[in-house]
């Protein structure tokens, strides 16, 4: 299994429609958390993930419930909510966003609810399938962890730059990258 340091979209033969598998593959290879995994691993993951359609108003995942899936929004818009008696909108989630990568690595209980606003098609990958695939290539885990670290770092940098300086409460609550 060789490492890939860059992303490349697979060109399909001219004139042939691309299969769902091909599409999944191209999508997965662009996800930052999965950057650098080998082609073989990507192929199996692309094969194992599944697509699901959610109707407007349907809940994709719910706060406080365990969820072992990661999601990539293929089309549509969903809204991310935090409930504490009433729903507070966190933000809207659009096409080509990737959510829930942590579920692939460990057991999490969701801290938010994700609800579809328009009809939403998601690409979903479950923890079980992800783990079983990575069992075949354990050396990839190191790469994954690196990506995770980078992801948290980038997230917190963005948060500090954009919001934290404006609000003392937020600032004193920041520091997830120091975990």
């Amino acid at each position: 299994m060789h490492e890939r340091g860059f992303c490349m979209s697979l060109s399909t033969e001219p004139g042939r429609a691309s299969s769902e598998f091909q599409e999944n593959l191209e999508i997965l290879m662009e996800i930052p958390l999965l950057a650098g995994l080998s082609l073989e691993v990507f192929k199996v993951l692309a094969y194992l993930c599944r697509r699901e359609i959610f109707r407007p108003g349907e809940v994709i995942f719910r706060q406080n419930e365990p969820d072992e899936n990661a999601y990539f929004i293929l089309s549509g818009t969903a809204v991310l909510l935090r409930e504490d008696g009433e729903d507070h909108e966190v933000r809207k989630i659009h096409e080509s966003e990737f959510l829930g990568g942590l579920s692939l690595l460990g057991d999490v209980k969701r801290l938010f609810t994700l609800r579809a606003e328009t009809p939403v098609t998601c690409l979903m990958l479950s923890q079980e399938r992800f783990r079983k695939t990575l069992e075949r290539a354990p050396e990839m885990i190191g790469r994954l962890l690196e990506n995770l670290v980078k992801g948290i770092q980038t997230w917190e940098e963005g948060f500090l730059n954009k919001h934290a300086m404006k609000c003392q409460d937020c600032l004193s609550g920041s520091g997830v990258s120091l975990v």
């Binding site: 299969s19 598998f21 073989e40 192929k43 199996v44 094969y47 194992l48 079980e128 399938r129 079983k132 075949r136």
Partner: peptide, 19 residues
């Protein structure tokens, strides 16, 4: 061809061969 390419090296588990 496609199946062998993807599944060639995988163990015979339901998870992998369902689809």
């Amino acid at each position: 061809q496609q199946s062998l390419d993807i599944l060639g090296g995988l163990p015979p588990e339901d998870l992998f061969f369902e689809q």
